[in-house]
Design a protein around this nucleic acid. Structure first.
Lengths: 192, 192
DNA sequence: CCGCTGTGAGACATTCATGTCTCATCTGGG
DNA sequence: CCCAGATGAGACATGAATGTCTCACAGCGG
């Protein structure tokens, strides 16, 4: 597996580099530019040719995360049908990006003070609106604010992603666990 | 507020330093030793006299977090009464340490590979046992594993702590929000 | 065949946090 | 009063990551 015999010159694949970096930084948020480059199979020089520095790389990852989120929001069609099903679709669609989001979730603590990226605000607004719609429709309880439900969703996504990475839970259970806990909670229902 | 007129020599207060460091690192996880020292009102030299380095400081914070957790576990008396009330008591008791735990929660991603501190394993075991007891008693649903409920609790505690820091939710709602979401979920109940 | 473009490898300077050290000063006890 | 202990301030060396640069070479098109 180490070398395939062709240490040839690879053309630069921006998307591949970003996704590899996301996967690495999710596991090791302090990885150096050199480690990122090696993980992506390119040289540090090339990495630096395309991303001015670590900040630029993280910002590109943030943009990727925002794009993935907005794609998931579109595919989940949050405006259609019951809000409950919208939440389930959202969790399902966002699952592939959960690792990247978990990294950004812990990294974004640094962005306080300089006004966070407008992209996150738009995403927040759409998710919050979903929970508010569910409350107005009588599906969701009204004693938990939409803002908190949104933050709780993020926290559960990150917890789920890390739990999968640590092998504490099975990847196949990811969507079910998060959606079920967020929607129904831990308490057993009295079945009708 | 800047100077009280007495820039005198302060005796070293280990607990005060640790708690100040925890508060700072919760907001800015990359704070330098110099920033930690200034925040605690001591010189970098003194800080380094008592903590061999950043690793030692983080480890001391980890030990503090473990101690706070175990204290909360004791006070919550998880073995008494319904597991549901045990969860509520645990969240209430652990609230003062939530910021520190949120920091350690994101920092502990680094500890992978070298075998994490045995203290966390003990805490994990006690919390997991609480959820399992609730399942056995018929209080909690059985299609969500105790391990996931434990991880979800950590994730919600971190999300709650960061939300309070960001001013997105009120500090007074912390315990209620976390316990209610974890136990009951977002769905509205059919009241009897 | 030749030249252009982009890459890999590595050298190099710079920056920054860290860790160690010295020295002056303050505090408290004998 | 004087000495021991501990702190604050700052200088200094170290190491790591970063950012910049050069050079050789592979691919690709004319």
């Amino acid at each position: 597996m180490s070398h395939l015999g062709y240490p040839r010159l690879m053309p630069f694949d921006r998307d591949h580099v970003l996704r590899t970096a996301a996967a690495l930084l999710t596991r090791k948020s302090t990885a150096t530019m050199d480690e990122v480059a090696k993980a992506a199979g390119i040289s540090r020089a090339t990495l630096h040719r395309h991303f001015a520095g670590r900040d630029a790389l993280v910002r590109a990852l943030e943009a990727l995360g925002i794009a993935e989120c907005e794609g998931a929001l579109e595919r989940a069609r949050l405006d259609e049908g019951p809000a409950t099903e919208g939440v389930r679709r959202l969790v399902r669609e966002i699952e592939p990006a959960a690792g990247l989001l978990a990294f950004l979730y812990s990294e974004n603590q640094l962005f306080e003070g300089d006004g966070q990226n407008a992209g996150w605000e738009r995403i927040d607004a759409r998710v919050t609106a979903l929970f508010r719609r569910g409350q107005d429709a009588g599906e969701f309880r009204i004693d938990l604010s939409p803002a908190w439900l949104t933050e709780a969703l993020y926290g559960l996504l990150a917890a789920g992603a890390w739990s999968v990475l640590d092998g504490k839970v099975a990847r196949n259970d990811f969507t079910f666990m998060i959606a079920e806990l967020l929607l129904g909670g831990a308490l057993r229902r009295e079945e009708s």
